[in-house]
Computed example of a mutant assay.
Amino acid sequence: MLTKKGKYGLKALVHLSYLPAGQLAFVNDIAVANNIPKKFLDAILGELRNAGFVQSRKGKDGGYRLARPAGDIKIGHVIRVLDGPLAPLPCASRTQYQPCEDCDEATCQVRHMMLEVRQAIAEVLDNRSLAAMRDSADDDVATVLKYQN
């Protein structure tokens, strides 16, 4: 399950993806525009900076921007940085595997199902860029506006 930290991190990255190349956004502006608590967003952006997704500059003219093009940022990687493994169970994780104490992994039907679930999640998130996520939202808004007029 995507946590609020992961959701807010993705919202902040989408926000930054709309900026012209090189332009910075203030944390407060990102927080207000996306309904994110500023203090929480500060911590999230720090993690995203440490992971190389965003760059920051301090001072009056400071703020945040994407560290690389939105098309080069994969959603699965962002979620792993902020929320950890994609797998719904530790025994189905590829990056942080942990055996379960209460079952035989070779015959556990729950584990085998969760391996499929993990693979399906990874297939979508690891093949979707931030740019594609942003653009699909734009397409959705355009469709809604078309039918409202």
Rank of each mutant, 00 (worst) to 15 (best):
K58N: 12
S93V: 06
S93C: 06
V27R: 15
P37V: 05
E47M: 02
L82E: 00
D72C: 07
A132S: 14
K39H: 06
V141A: 15
R65P: 06
N50I: 00
L115T: 11
G46A: 04
I30E: 05
D139H: 15
R128M: 15
A51W: 00
R111Y: 04
K74I: 11
I79W: 00
Q109F: 08
N34Y: 10
A31P: 02
I73H: 00
Q55C: 07
L130P: 09
R128I: 14
G59R: 06
M1H: 15
V81T: 09
N149Q: 07
D83Q: 11
A21C: 02
E105I: 04
C108V: 14
L115A: 04
G62N: 12
P20S: 12
L2D: 07
A67I: 01
A51C: 09
V117T: 11
R94H: 11
I44K: 00
G52K: 03
Y64R: 01
R94C: 08
Y18M: 08
G63L: 01
S17F: 02
P90Y: 13
G52D: 10
C100P: 04
R65T: 03
A43L: 11
D135I: 14
Q23P: 00
Q23N: 05
V81S: 11
A25H: 06
I44S: 02
L130A: 12
M114N: 08
K58H: 07
Y64W: 10
V32C: 07
T95Q: 09
A25I: 03
P37K: 12
R49F: 01
T107C: 02
K39W: 02
A67Y: 01
A25G: 04
K38L: 02
R80D: 07
M133C: 11
A67N: 08
L16E: 02
D135Y: 13
H77V: 06
E105S: 11
R68T: 10
K11T: 03
L16R: 03
I36A: 08
Q109P: 00
G9M: 00
C108S: 06
V14Y: 01
E116C: 07
K146E: 14
Y97H: 12
S56C: 14
D83M: 10
A67P: 01
I44W: 00
L48A: 02
Q119C: 12
I36D: 00
N149E: 04
I73K: 03
L125N: 05
R94T: 06
A87L: 10
L145G: 01
A132G: 10
K5I: 11
A142S: 15
I44L: 01
V124T: 13
V78W: 00
